[in-house]
Simulated assay, not measured.
Amino acid sequence: MRLPLLSPSSLSGDQKELYDSIMTVVNEAFGSFTVRNQDGALLGPFNPMLHFPAFGKAAWAMNKTMYDHTTLPNSVLQVAVLVTGTRLGARFQIYGHERMALASGVPAEKIATIVAGERPTDLTREEAVAYDVAAALNRGARLPESLYNAGVETFGKEGMAEIIFLVGCFHLVAIILNGYDVPVPDTDD
């Protein structure tokens, strides 16, 4: 890790405001994975966001918007996030979203296949479209018209926008994680 962890007691006003906003979502939505150390310092992409709050607030605003305005089933979103994290090799993102996917009902075997860089054969229709859209966007080219249309047919225009913006958001998260060489926390699980 390229940045030291920031204890909550050492935070400036801007950092504390960002910390509190992050913790609100973490407490509501993150479930069983470790995002703070014993002293309360944030791990994952959150520590770099706190170090540079001018950038971190903007990055967090996008991430928080994805949590606040999600309409699609969580399992579908987790598939798209895992495809993205795997493509970019973002260890902490994979670590956390494996757990979130399990909590949303995605079977461990399906998660393992996605994290291995393969497309599971037993995806639901919605998961399959989310997987294919995320995989295509992660290749860095124009999304094929047929795949875009399949997404709109499956999720509607708003749902398709949610997947597209989610993939973009988690590219940003993965870049932060990889840029600062953020490790997976030591856990007992």
Rank of each mutant, 00 (worst) to 15 (best):
V35L: 05
V35C: 14
Q38H: 12
D39K: 15
G40Q: 10
G40E: 12
A41M: 10
L43R: 00
G44E: 12
G44H: 13
P45R: 06
P45T: 09
N47A: 13
N47R: 10
P48M: 11
L50A: 13
L50D: 13
L50T: 12
P53H: 03
F55M: 15
F55K: 10
F55R: 13
F55I: 14
F55N: 15
K57Y: 07
W60C: 05
W60G: 06
W60S: 05
T65I: 00
T65D: 15
M66N: 13
M66W: 00
D68F: 05
D68M: 11
T71V: 11
T71H: 08
T71P: 02
N74W: 09
S75H: 12
V79M: 05
A80C: 06
A80T: 06
V81F: 08
V81L: 10
L82T: 04
L82Q: 02
V83R: 02
V83I: 09
T84M: 11
G85V: 10
G85E: 11
T86L: 07
L88R: 10
L88K: 09
G89R: 07
G89L: 08
A90R: 07
R91M: 04
F92V: 03
Q93E: 15
Q93P: 00
Q93V: 12
Q93I: 07
Q93L: 14
Q93H: 09
Y95E: 07
G96S: 12
H97Q: 06
H97A: 04
R99V: 14
R99W: 02
A101D: 11
A101K: 02
A101H: 08
A103R: 14
A103W: 01
S104P: 12
S104C: 10
G105Y: 11
V106Y: 03
P107H: 06
P107D: 15
P107F: 02
A108S: 13
A108L: 12
E109L: 04
I111F: 07
I111N: 04
I111Q: 03
I111L: 05
I114M: 05
V115C: 13
V115E: 03
V115H: 03
A116R: 04
G117Y: 08
R119T: 10
P120S: 03
P120G: 03
P120C: 06
P120D: 05
T121E: 13
T121D: 12
L123T: 01
L123M: 05
T124I: 08
R125P: 04
R125V: 14
E126F: 01
A128R: 09
A128L: 09
V129M: 05
V129S: 01
A130K: 04
V133S: 02
A136W: 01
L137S: 02
L137E: 03
R139G: 09
G140I: 05
A141Q: 13
R142Y: 04
R142D: 03
L143C: 04
P144K: 10
P144I: 07
E145M: 06
E145R: 15
S146T: 11
S146G: 10
L147K: 09
L147P: 06
Y148S: 05
Y148P: 00
G151S: 09
G151N: 07
V152P: 01
V152R: 13
